[in-house]
């Protein structure tokens, strides 16, 4: 069964994020990756850096958690089980609540991601695995900057 963990700065696994107080809440990041070690490394890093971190270990859970928590940024592994990262990305972008959520696609094979239509699906960045947490954080912070309206 899909699981989602929520961790605040202090590591409170049961905390829920009040959507109405969005402006005062810490930035929320969703880490969607099927590898436990990867999730733990990123959760540890981003929690220490003041983010509220939610996680998902497959594509279906990623969509569910994204719609529940409306993260500021999603870090999605391309090769997650159940539904792949691109399909999950399409579903997330198709929902009005998460249409503007920024998405970083992590993949070992960027050319394959492009071939599979990741650009059209709405990915904001492609990063090659392995990606150090501090490098990932730099990209996350760049995407957090307000974007110009079209």
């Amino acid at each position: 069964m899909a699981r989602a963990a929520v961790q605040r700065q202090g590591g409170d696994a049961s905390a829920n994020i009040p959507y109405r107080r969005r402006s005062r809440r810490p930035p929320v990041i969703l880490i969607a990756d099927d590898t436990t070690d990867t999730r733990e490394l990123y959760v540890d890093h981003f929690s220490r850096r003041g983010f509220a971190v939610v996680t998902a270990h497959d594509g279906a859970a990623a969509v569910r958690v994204a719609l529940d928590h409306v993260p500021d940024v999603i870090v999605m592994d391309l090769a997650v089980p159940q539904i792949d990262g691109i399909t999950a990305l399409r579903r997330i972008k198709a929902d009005a609540r998460t249409a503007r959520t920024r998405v970083i696609l992590l993949t070992g094979y960027p050319h394959k991601a492009v071939e599979r239509g990741a650009l059209n699906a709405g990915a904001d960045r492609f990063l090659t695995k392995p990606c150090l947490p501090e490098d990932l954080e730099r990209h996350v912070k760049e995407l957090q900057r307000p974007r110009r309206s079209a």
């Binding site: 990756d33 590898t35 070690d37 990867t38 490394l41 090769a79 070992g108 695995k129 392995p130 990606c131 150090l132 947490p133």
Partner: peptide, 30 residues
């Protein structure tokens, strides 16, 4: 990565996941 994965009889995807751990916790880099 492809040749090291073949040498270790594992998928490159899995090797790249392990590599992240090794970059953070061991003295390895890409």
């Amino acid at each position: 990565f492809a040749c090291l994965a073949a040498q270790q009889r594992m998928k490159e995807h899995d090797l790249r996941a392990v590599a992240l751990v090794l970059m953070v916790r061991a003295d390895l880099r890409v």
